[in-house]
């Protein structure tokens, strides 16, 4: 009997519950999850809620025009296209909304790819995200098994920069607390592309992530760095269940 118990303990120690059976789950509980709108000022929330005052809608209007000119030949409906992204490509890399737009642009429209943060690219991305408003980003059930997710997870939890922060320090543990007069958000990307008053323009999630690195006083990756796409995939996984609300108005 005693032997049997010891054996059972040994087995339990050397065969811990496998990750394959219980995949990691986001740290923020489903009941507590809130998009960035839950942390902005009432004035910005009001501006986002009202499409007539949301400057991001100007980009949506332009994206709609480009979509009907260049994209509607293949895509009969814009709804839901953005909700399928970001996704894993067969080579294990992550395809973001902006990547997919540029892939179509060079392979289907046969035009040079749009430049990073250029007006037509932001316009199309904003229009497509707007057309998926209310839907959630699709997250593959086995996404946590992917190398991209694991790379992003280690980047998200890696302490870096002059302030000795990782992403978690603020967005998993300190959300709702204030830095100066600003509330720390949970770091979800469902409002992007978003109109940020600090940028005084619309910008992508890619740019927002680079701004995070800047704020952490660490090396800011180039826009094309694959780690940023990996992080977009990771953020979509963290934000499971939150509806897309682009173009959001953010500080």
């Amino acid at each position: 009997m005693r032997c049997g118990l010891a054996l059972a303990i040994c087995v339990a120690l050397f065969n811990p519950p496998s990750f394959a059976q219980s995949p990691p789950t986001p740290l923020i509980a489903k009941e507590a999850i809130r998009s960035g709108s839950g942390f902005t000022s009432p004035a910005l929330r009001a501006q986002q809620k009202d499409d007539d005052l949301n400057p991001g809608m100007l980009w949506v209007d332009q994206g709609r025009e480009i979509f009907s000119r260049d994209c509607s030949g293949c895509h009969t409906k814009p709804e839901g296209l953005a909700a399928r992204l970001p996704k894993l490509a067969s080579d294990g890399s992550v395809v973001t909304l902006e990547h997919q737009i540029n892939r179509c642009q060079s392979e289907r429209v046969k035009q040079p790819a749009y430049a990073t943060e250029s007006q037509p690219l932001l316009g199309l991305a904003a229009f497509l995200a707007f057309a998926s408003r209310g839907m959630s980003h699709a997250v593959a059930p086995d996404v946590t098994q992917s190398a991209a997710w694991q790379r992003a997870q280690s980047e998200f939890t890696r302490v870096q920069g002059k302030l000795d922060f990782n992403c978690r320090s603020c967005h998993d543990y300190l959300y709702g607390k204030r830095v100066r007069n600003q509330a720390i958000s949970q770091g979800h990307g469902v409002g992007y592309p978003a109109y940020r008053v600090e940028w005084q323009t619309l910008g992508s999630l890619n740019r927002r992530l680079r701004a995070c690195f800047f704020g952490m006083e660490t090396k800011v990756p180039e826009a094309s760095d694959p780690i940023l796409a990996d992080l977009e995939l990771y953020l979509a996984w963290r934000a499971q269940g939150l509806p897309i609300e682009a173009p959001a108005v953010r500080r």
Partner: peptide
């Protein structure tokens, strides 16, 4: 704005 943008660049709502 350096790139030509199709479509509108304003909204007037009534």
């Amino acid at each position: 704005m350096s790139e030509p943008i199709p479509g509108r660049n304003a909204r007037l709502l009534v």
